[in-house]
Nucleic acid binder design. Structure first.
Lengths: 222, 222
DNA sequence: TATTATTTTTAGACGCATCTAAATAAATGT
DNA sequence: ACATTTATTTAGATGCGTCTAAAAATAATA
């Protein structure tokens, strides 16, 4: 099934997709508006159009959810986005905090062949520079069993496998703190008062706020 | 000087640029309409806008020409386009007849840094896969002293350095005829009747119509 | 439950890029 | 030089994506 989507329609699908990954229920108009930095009324308009195109299921005042068709379309865009991010970091030596905006543009380039060739050129990467999994050509996503550092118990050691917040500021903070994908993190204290955490990364002891630890995804080391 | 241009505005600039390369005088509304497969009235509208933005000089009924600002903007897009074409052919193994449409999309991705990084990654190529020169970062274009095969005299030998018509059909014809950039072409006969030419390429003798020879750009071999 | 607050939708408008049809200017031919 | 053809511009309309302001529905709270 193929269909010509505008740049804007694709961005809406992507937004709805990323919002519905985190929860089961339908996505609200306001959530989408906030994510895309637009107004709720604009969202309603667009949602109706996507509904007509069978990309989302929509009932007035009930929010939206992606149809299978809508989801696979969104996944295809995410696949593009993450492959381009790998290209930018691995081949063009961008740092991981610079690539999002550029990939945001590149992801909309329409050519199946380009996507497949790019993937092969990059040696079939499984994750993008932020640790997010790259969907395969059939749209399957390898969800790893990772969890936020926030959940890890005192005394445990884990490895950073992904970041949820990919904003430049957050990524630069990590760079400055010398925390990268693959870094070993040992939890030595959890502060009850503000949920901050004291950890050891590469022999250095650091205190991380809950805002930080909720955005660092790790796998426990046995 | 920087300015935010829409996808469409950029395409108009590129069209005007490519039309004005071939001639000195101003470019007519109809020429642009034909090139962009749109209507003359649409062109008039857009030209007015570009004029307001100081990208072109426009007087009613007198056609348009690019300002220095407009030209440098157009050249920047052409630079992007040709670099991406090199990438697609050299790195992703596309054939030269497949890359135009994809590069047409990639050229609009906005990031100076991306362009410069890409150029470095490709080892500062000077020509795209069709033999067209790639403008450098300052917008300078290395115009080679090439001429159409059509002009070459009987008995002369030359080398193919570029093609003017980059349509898939034409490029596939060349592939099928085993004619590529760098091929040595010896002119052994010029037919007065229809301006067709008999040439030898790689020991094979072929007859080429004037439509073909006008689109093959060559350099004479001494 | 009644009232208030919030969320969502509708109505109407705007800018962009396009179109058709009609008007105007320029070029051409006899 | 005049009439005709061609090129160009204007006028008015359309679809897309957006907005503001107002109305309607839902959620929250006294």
């Amino acid at each position: 099934m193929k269909i010509e989507l505008s740049y804007t329609e694709e961005n809406y699908l992507k937004a709805i997709f990323s919002l519905s990954v985190k929860k089961e229920s339908a996505v609200s108009t306001n959530e989408i508006a906030q994510k895309l930095e637009t107004k709720a009324s604009s969202v309603t308009d667009m949602i109706k159009k996507l509904n007509d195109k069978k990309l989302v299921d929509y009932k007035k005042y009930q929010g939206v959810s992606l149809t299978d068709f809508g989801r696979s379309t969104a996944v295809y865009i995410v696949r593009n986005h993450r492959l381009w991010e790998v290209f930018l970091v691995e081949k063009l030596n961008f740092s991981w905090d610079e690539v999002h905006d550029i990939a945001e543009q590149l992801e909309h380039v329409k050519s199946e062949k380009l996507t497949e060739r790019l993937e092969a050129f990059l040696d079939h990467p499984t994750h993008d520079p932020h640790g997010d999994p790259i969907p395969d050509e059939n749209g399957n996503i390898n969800h790893e069993s990772s969890e936020p550092l926030f959940n890890i118990e005192k005394g445990s050691t884990c490895v950073l496998v992904g970041v949820r917040d990919s904003s430049s500021l957050f990524l630069q903070f990590l760079d400055n703190s010398n925390i990268k994908l693959g870094s070993e993190i040992k939890v030595i204290h959890k502060e009850v008062f503000d949920n901050s955490m004291t950890v050891v990364v590469d022999t250095l002891t650091r205190s991380l706020s809950s805002q930080i630890t909720k955005n660092l995804f790790v796998k426990e080391v046995n």
